[in-house]
Nucleic acid binder design. Structure first.
Lengths: 202, 202
DNA sequence: CATGTTCCGCATCGATCGCTACAGAAGGGT
DNA sequence: ACCCTTCTGTAGCGATCGATGCGGAACATG
């Protein structure tokens, strides 16, 4: 079997799928899953509905792929933050990344993982559940990182990693919501610094 | 002029407008402004679209009135919290009220003021702006309350009421988002207690 | 150039969106 | 009883929703 070579015969697609997905990401980010209509999406992507369906499947699949792109792009600070050597370093990096990503001078404010589909009607429950899972995953990884910090003696042994992760997650979401409301970057970073001055909040 | 007496002539309406508004509130709370269709709303309200428009105006007005009802009902803890004698008491009451309201055993999870219309498409910008104003108002009242606490010596004179209000607001929103994701009441209250143990986070 | 394959513009699908016109039903005032 | 006002059920408005069928255009391969 020497088939399945990376040589698709036929007419090549006339647009950059990566760039189209980036445009879709920005629309979902700014307007949410339900607020972003197919017409708005394809218009921003610069392609027809036919091309969108052929390339990405359907609206929910497009959202799923946009969320993946968001995770590996604007939200990539999260993975790096978890690699910080201390729990304080992790939290500092998470807050700094959250503030920066949710208040970019150009582009949407807030966090796609929060405002993309926080609640929805029945027909969009797929997108909603997708984001619930996304947020749960972020929480769990913070909690596991804190557990490691406790095991390493970086955090006091009586610390509850779960509770502490809830606290950090809450502040990050709170930053995202306020950013979506138009609160500025400096103000949010100052607030995060205030929280960091009392770490850990035993 | 003894006209304009509270005696509307004609056929009286055949439903309880207050109860209908309560039903609409629950739908908006659970599904958001864009996710709640007129059909879903009127079905839950038990009235026809005609009656809804005659009584409440249109969808955006219905949302506005539902938000008012939410403010005076489920969110009434907020006004009472600001009357607490100390800043710590205020924050304690705000967190307790937020946790309780966003995790009611029966009824929607989360906060209408956050998830009702955090981001929207163009056609729903009115609802979005309404909630931005609603959240801004809440933040401002907390800030003013903290300013008073500083003036009274209840909080250290070097405290920034604005920053502290951002911090409290962020945690409240973070509680709301996690509640919307299904996180339980006890876990969120424990997290709030952890934050309260370090007060103020100078 | 001939052939096979893929892509894409156009038109449109049925369903649902928010919203309203109309006419009859149901009450109050006199 | 009458009339007048208001409410409400039905039916449907134009617009938009997400999603497709189809046929020709465009490109790789031989």
């Amino acid at each position: 079997m020497k088939t399945s070579q990376r040589r698709p015969t036929g007419r090549p697609r006339g647009f950059d799928a990566d760039e189209a997905l980036e445009r879709a990401l920005l629309v979902f980010w700014e307007q949410g899953y339900e607020g972003a209509s197919l017409a708005t999406l394809t218009d921003a992507m610069g392609i027809s509905t036919t091309s969108m369906y052929a390339t990405f499947g359907n609206k929910e699949e497009l959202f799923r792929k946009a969320l993946e792109r968001y995770t590996e792009g604007p939200s990539a600070y999260f993975d790096r933050a978890l690699d910080e050597p201390t729990a304080l370093g992790v939290v500092t990096a998470i807050f700094a990344g959250t503030v920066r990503t949710t208040t970019r001078p150009t582009g949407p404010n807030g966090c796609l993982g929060v405002q993309g589909a926080l609640v929805t009607g029945d027909s969009s429950r797929g997108a909603r559940d997708l984001l619930v899972t996304w947020r749960d995953s972020g929480y769990s990884r913070i909690r596991e990182r804190f557990q490691r910090a406790v095991d390493d003696g970086d955090l006091p042994p009586e610390t509850s990693p779960a509770l502490l992760a809830r606290y950090v997650t809450a502040l990050a979401y709170g930053i995202a919501v306020q950013a979506a409301s138009g609160v500025g970057r400096d103000e949010l970073q100052d607030m995060a610094d205030t929280a960091l001055r009392n770490w850990p909040p035993c």
